[in-house]
Structure formats: structure tokens, C-alpha cells
């Protein structure tokens, strides 16, 4: 008798499974969980904390907040950040002062751990939302984050 009850139970469980997938088939119009990715580029909104790449925000006057303290360079586990710095004369005090020449960011080495941004005392660097980082030439992944001719924002160091 268990022979027949096995058959009955088997068919029943199979039909139960089919009802689950069948339900999704019928409601498939609204149920798609996939995104139409490159088509939805305009509307695609990443979360504000999303870690795409490290950027250095500049003001309209081409000023940034990086003092060249190199804390990020030390915090980075992979040698992603290299700060090439220089000493310049501060106009106000006339003393010699450290300033950045180039803030070099090797995106190809970055693991997006966020330690540099966490450690930055002046919020000079932030996470960018851009995630489309594929390029044809890997040397373009080495970026200089400070714009040419940019200067340190007044009052950051105080």
C-alpha cells in the first residue's frame, strides 16, 4: 500500500512545487527582479554611502581640503594612495609649509576598504558614486585627484 501512497505523495509534492513557479510565471509582468542595466543609467541612483571610487571634491574656486598630512597614505593597506608633496611659502605667515603637488590614486589597486576616508582629518577625500570604472588601458586607472592649479582651502588647518 505504501507503493501507492508514495506515488500519491510524490505527485502531490511535485504539483506543489509547480504551483510556486506557476504563480511567479503568471505574475511575471510585474515581478522581474533584474534591472535593465545600461538602459536605466539615467534613473539609476546609488546609495549615498556607496563606495565607487575615491574622489577629492573641489570648490568652484578650485580649492580642496587636503593638507598633505599623508594619513591616508599610511592607512591604505595596498599602497593605493601616493602623495607627492612639496614645501611652499605660506603667503600669510611667510613660513615654509607642506602642500600637495599631486594626490595620486591607483584605482587598480584599491579594495574599497574605506580606511583612507575614515582616517582623513579634514574630509578632503570622499567616496564617488561612479562605478563604471572599466577602461581599455589600465594606466588610465592611475589618477591625480587634485585638479591642476588647485590650492588648499583657507582655514582647513586651523
Amino acid at each position: 500500500m505504501s507503493y501507492f501512497s508514495d506515488i500519491y505523495k510524490g505527485i502531490k509534492t511535485l504539483l506543489t512545487g509547480m504551483s510556486v513557479t506557476g504563480k511567479y510565471f503568471v505574475t511575471s509582468r510585474k515581478g522581474a527582479i533584474t534591472q535593465q542595466y545600461p538602459d536605466n543609467r539615467d534613473t539609476l541612483q546609488m546609495f549615498e554611502r556607496f563606495r565607487g571610487e575615491v574622489i577629492m571634491p573641489h570648490t568652484d574656486d578650485n580649492e580642496h581640503r587636503c593638507t598633505g598630512c599623508q594619513k591616508c597614505e599610511i592607512a591604505c593597506p595596498n599602497g593605493t594612495i601616493e602623495i607627492i608633496w612639496d614645501r611652499g611659502i605660506d603667503e600669510a605667515t611667510g613660513k615654509k609649509k607642506k602642500k600637495i603637488d599631486q594626490f595620486v590614486y591607483h584605482l587598480s589597486m584599491c579594495t574599497m576598504c574605506g580606511l583612507c576616508i575614515d582616517v582623513c582629518p579634514h574630509d578632503a577625500i570622499k567616496w564617488g558614486q561612479n562605478f563604471e570604472n572599466s577602461v581599455y588601458d589600465r594606466s588610465t586607472l592611475t589618477r591625480v585627484l587634485n585638479k591642476p592649479g588647485s590650492t588648499l582651502m583657507q582655514g582647513v588647518e586651523d
Binding site: F47, R49, F50, R51, M112
Partner: peptide, 27 residues
């Protein structure tokens, strides 16, 4: 993953904990 991304910034490799607590407060 969306919850994680909103709070930690990443979906898979979050690195949200630091010795001493959490890198950021929850969203």
C-alpha cells in the same frame, strides 16, 4: 545586499567593523 549597501557602502566586502566599533553609524 541593499540594506548593507545603504549602511556599509558595499554589498559584499563591507569592511564595516573597525577595532573599537563600527566605521559609520547605521543609516
Amino acid at each position: 545586499n541593499d540594506i548593507m549597501e545603504e549602511t556599509c557602502g558595499a554589498r559584499l566586502t563591507m569592511n564595516y567593523n573597525v577595532p573599537g566599533g563600527l566605521m559609520l553609524d547605521i543609516h
